[in-house]
Design a protein around this nucleic acid. Sequence first.
DNA 1: TGACACTGAGACGGTTTATGTCTTAGTGTC
DNA 2: GACACTAAGACATAAACCGTCTCAGTGTCA
Lengths: 194, 194
Amino acid sequence: MLSSEDKILDATRRCCERWGIERVTVDDIASEAGVSRATLYRLFPGGKDILFEALRVRELDEFFTRMLTEIAGAESFEDLLVRTIVTATLELRADEHLAIMLATEPGETLGQLTAAGVPRIIRVATTYLTPLVTPYLDDRQSAQLIDVLARATISYFLAPSEHFDLGDPVSARSFIRPLLSVFHPHTTSLNDSL
Amino acid sequence: MLSSEDKILDATRRCCERWGIERVTVDDIASEAGVSRATLYRLFPGGKDILFEALRVRELDEFFTRMLTEIAGAESFEDLLVRTIVTATLELRADEHLAIMLATEPGETLGQLTAAGVPRIIRVATTYLTPLVTPYLDDRQSAQLIDVLARATISYFLAPSEHFDLGDPVSARSFIRPLLSVFHPHTTSLNDSL
DNA sequence: TGACACTGAGACGGTTTATGTCTTAGTGTC
DNA sequence: GACACTAAGACATAAACCGTCTCAGTGTCA
């Protein structure tokens, strides 16, 4: 049995696919979730804005949780980075909800991926991925690397390049390798190289 | 250069694909059309309802206009009927706007195809097709035949059958042929056979 | 030039819809 | 029986939408 929170967030997702972020109402979401409006406001005080925030947080958490299981067995630093961006790219491409939102509400959705939402993405990515990277880099370098890779992954997802296909392990490796000379594991910091 | 009416109807179409019939506002349509609200109300007094009515009328007209060019060269009564339902079926299947509306607003759209909108469909179909049928049938028979074929075409479009594929000329012919024994060109009337 | 038709912008009052809070009564649990 | 949780819905407030209207700007034709 799903918790009321999850039912409501699921309903939020379906409703904003259907009506769009602007047009959806709290009533829509409540009745789609099979929950009274009072309950919704009790669980998510603040209404629509809070609801969408919570939804984005949940989806980011799910995104990186799924990712962690995929990239678990990496055996080298390079392998870890390649798996990370390949998995992230494939997951982004397979995300139907994201595709629908990009098609129907490009403005808001792109904003979440490239502007307003970027800090949250970076924060969550750092939280999830830092433990995997710290065997190879110090905290500062880890954070910098994750920042760069997250932005690159998003960019290549949104606007495919003729030079790299980050969904393909071979191509992704050719993208990662030059970066390794910048992020020397346990030797130099990024700043030394800039 | 499109007339303001056409710009507005095009905008209506795009808007109700995007926001849905219920959620769309006159402001949406006006700004999508690049026209002021005042102009819209001047050209379509009555607002949304009148607008959708006008849109449906226009689309029906376009539908049958396109159809007439396809079924022009029919050489026999049977051939005419087969071409008619095949062309109509294929056109329905190729109609992206219709597909979107069926997916996003099935209730209203189905109503327009099967209930509330049927009289208009029959009326327009009769207007366009009667001239082609009158060489073979009298007016009353023509109207009855068109009525039956229109309903059948819609039904088989909405719910494909395992027995007939009205988009396929061969199958459509096997569907039409039994009807010919009911609608004897210039011999018996439908009522005689019932 | 002046009459005319048409338009965009936007003000207006009235109506509908959505919001957020609150109360009440019902249900299941410990 | 106390407790937590919920649906339903009343309520006032706020926002959005509607339909009409005025006004000023633009282009056209005589």
